[in-house]
Design a protein around this nucleic acid. Structure first.
Lengths: 137, 137
DNA sequence: CTACTTGCAAAAGGTTTGCAACCGG
DNA sequence: CCGGTTGCAAACCTTTTGCAAGTAG
């Protein structure tokens, strides 16, 4: 993803392309595969990779702004870490979770097919359905 | 579940049946339907229902002890609350999550049937598979 | 200029830990 | 009695908030 596209992406979401946001957006979205991270891991990687430094609060700000804009999604994980995982893949999809390494792996939506799904209780509608597969060695 | 069974359940798990544990165990396991709770909600309900009081730390202790003993399971939830949900249903099963009320509803394992499941990556095995269905109005 | 952002530090949850007092076997 | 438990407060960790200083448009 080129820098102009990053700028476009930010602007079209109503986000001012500040130095930090552009840097973080490039880091997150300028890659082929989907990327899973926590705020902490992102912070580490950013400080390692760039000369700038980022206040933790700014990363939280930015990540939430991206999430609200629909550029990131949040993943449920019941790992040892109590922290929140984010995913650059915003399509509806599923996850493997490696309980040994605390690593997430995407599963494309079409790799899971249902023969039977329960219907939503009284008056409610299904918003979305996630499959979570825990892995062991 | 009678008190003797509660005591047996505790003892067979190597847990001394102290006043608090018996009280909490009765509250959790002496019911027909499965029960979902957070430490905070459990604390509120306990203090309302009984004359005794419980230190928060004791509830954490006890809940974790029950979980380790296999009497409770933990549920992944990505709700607004950052807290951990527990479930008295320890069989492998699935959940509806009502995003409006933050309420969990069990789905029996046999209500979900797969036609296709991805296979575990390189050398890993599937430990378990959970389906999580978010509900809206 | 003005409004939005950043950085910093303090505050806010939720959960864990340390330790003296307590109690079940 | 002894070792597991409880209660309390302090410590911890992640995340949020308040506010002054900085910056994009």
């Amino acid at each position: 993803m080129k820098k102009t596209n990053i700028l476009k992406k930010l602007r079209s979401s109503g986000l001012r392309p500040t130095k930090q946001r552009v840097e973080i957006a490039k880091f997150l979205f300028d890659r082929e595969k989907t990327f899973h991270f926590t705020v902490e891991s992102l912070n580490k990687l950013l400080t390692k990779k760039t000369t700038n430094k980022f206040a933790l609060a700014t990363i939280y700000n930015t990540v939430h702004a991206f999430k609200t804009a629909g550029h990131l999604s949040e993943v449920d994980v019941r790992g040892k870490k109590k922290t929140t995982y984010f995913d650059t893949n915003v399509k509806n999809h599923h996850h493997f979770y490696d309980t040994e390494t605390s690593e997430l792996i995407d599963i494309n939506e079409d790799e899971v097919v249902f023969e039977k799904i329960p219907k939503a209780p009284n008056g409610k509608k299904i918003k979305n359905l996630e499959v979570f597969i825990n892995l062991k060695n």
